[in-house]
Amino acid sequence: MDFSALNPIALVASLVVAATPLLFAALGELVTEKSGVLNLGVEGMMIFGAICGFAISVESGSPWLGLVAAAIGGALISLIFGVLTQVLLSNQVATGLALTMFGLGLAALIGQPYAGIKPPSFPKLDLPVLSDLPVIGPLLFQYDYMVYVSLALTVGIWLFLTRSRAGLVLRAVGENHDAAHSLGYNVILIRLAAIAFGGACAGLGGAYLSLIRVPQWTEGMTAGAGWIALAIVVFASWKPWRVLLGAYLFGGVTILQLNLQALGISIQSQYLSMTPYLVTIIVLVIMSADRSRAALNAPASLGRVFHKTG
């Protein structure tokens, strides 16, 4: 085995890039779940965001416009789920799964003409001096802008949930929707907003894949990232900082798997492709071993239908 082929700096840099789409999607889902809604359609929203972002940036030539389109696209498709579950009171699990299928199919349809095209390239951070520093430069100051946006979003969501009144109301709705309703809060509207935010974040995560990480459009390119994002939220016990940790951990597993394959270690590649999912299952088992503690952090109304009465 030749480990010298592994460059630690390049490894960390590729880890960050692999983790960023997960981070976007998981942060969005965190906010959605904090409002008491379980949206299993993350995968569908991501891939839809990926193609929206890709198509618009190819057509317009502007990667930034593509990202905006991805966020809007993700929010719009998530609102289908929102209206179905919040207004028409359909089952959240079934509707979320349907959203995933719908998103995958719709994205494939829209993506037909875009296969094999290269999107406009995305600018990277280039600070004078700082970015040119050896080691520290590539580790901290040479990423694309969206990496920094995702980190800022983590801080922002943490501040929003723990410090702001609006965040408190959101948590209250997720904790006990009947009580929030009787205090006069509009449960349905708040949840729709949280769902749309979750969709926008998932869309950004998807567009990060198609515009920055890969960058190319292939059908089904999210390849289960949405499911990992869902697992990260539980793994993080609904805390933004742990979502960051989880996303980088899972990003790391992905990169490790790719690099081990590249090193030609004689494990069948299928086993390595399994690792992120195996880790997810193991973590979930460990997390839920102590039932009462796991339940303490979960929003108490998660996945429950809110039936507005009197």
Partner: peptide, 24 residues
């Protein structure tokens, strides 16, 4: 004051109170 309290178990007393006030 509701019969089945309009309270949130995972929030603190102060957070629960501020949620029920207009200008907290």
């Amino acid at each position: 004051v509701f019969q089945h309290f309009s309270l949130f178990e995972a929030l603190t007393v102060a957070e629960n109170i501020t949620l029920g006030m207009e200008n907290a």
